[in-house]
């Protein structure tokens, strides 16, 4: 059986192998990607970004649980920077995304940026297609919201969620303006850990006015570690998905 056939049957190993190939020798996979494109419907892609420590991975874990309860297959690409000096990378985001016992319907892959600006977006885009071929009903792409490469990567996502937490009220001014502009949903996580008013006010100020596009970026409050606010976030994501569908 060809690699593609195996992927289409939901094989984890084949899926993993093709993603590796996309990372290592992008040009050699053009044919496979084309075959995949012919055989799949594009999957809804969720980009989740935000500064370190706001609880992105935990939030993703809760979303995965939520999608699994609805029997949806979830693919995750967790992107972390490579060291510009050694080329090495430490990929530790899986820790907080994992289920207590592995689940056939969840595929998590850590990717290092490998210092390539345009290349990363392309690789991510193709990896999404592979996950789509594997059967994902939703693909979540996670990055730290800093640096040009990450903003670029976020552009491959259909719905972009910017995650923040209390205590970041002033940092927001310093965040990449690009990320703020493209956010479709803003999440304030860890609302049990401090006052959120300051952050909300700041968000209101910087949140882009996209009313004329027919979508108002919403602010949702969560406590990911306890699972509160997740259903609301899920519903908002679905709403955005439908909004995009209607727009087309």
């Amino acid at each position: 059986m060809s690699l593609i056939e195996k992927i289409l049957q939901g094989d984890h190993k084949a899926t993993a192998k093709l993603i590796s190939k996309i990372e290592d020798e992008p040009t050699s996979t053009l044919k496979e990607i084309k075959v995949l494109e012919e055989r799949i419907v594009p999957v809804h892609t969720l980009g989740i970004t935000g500064p370190p420590g706001v609880g992105k991975s935990t939030l993703i874990a809760r979303l995965i649980e939520h999608y699994r309860e609805k029997n949806k297959k979830v693919g995750v690409l967790a992107i972390d920077p490579s060291s510009p000096f050694t080329g090495g990378a430490l990929l530790g985001d899986r820790i907080r995304m994992q289920m207590p016992s592995p689940d056939e319907g969840v595929f998590i892959r850590s990717m290092a940026t490998r210092g390539q600006l345009g290349g990363l977006s392309r690789a991510t885009n193709n990896a999404i297609k592979v996950l789509s071929g594997w059967g994902a009903d939703i693909v979540i792409v996670e990055t730290v919201g800093a640096g040009q490469a990450e903003v670029e990567v976020m552009r491959v996502a259909d719905t972009i969620v910017l995650v923040l937490s209390p205590g970041l009220g002033d940092d927001i001014q310093m965040m990449k303006a690009g990320i703020l502009e493209i956010g479709d949903i803003f999440v304030i996580n860890k609302i049990d850990q401090g006052e959120t008013g300051h952050l909300e006010r700041n968000l209101e100020l910087v949140r882009p006015g996209r009313e004329k596009e027919g979508w108002v970026p919403a602010i949702i409050k969560t406590i990911a570690i306890k699972g509160s606010g997740i259903d609301e976030l899920y519903k908002k994501i679905e709403k955005h998905r439908k909004y995009l569908k209607n727009k087309k």
Binding site: G53, I95, R96
Partner: peptide
């Protein structure tokens, strides 16, 4: 009620 702790690794 409390949630479970998972470490965040920033090595």
């Amino acid at each position: 009620e409390f949630g479970e702790y998972r470490e965040s690794v920033s090595i």
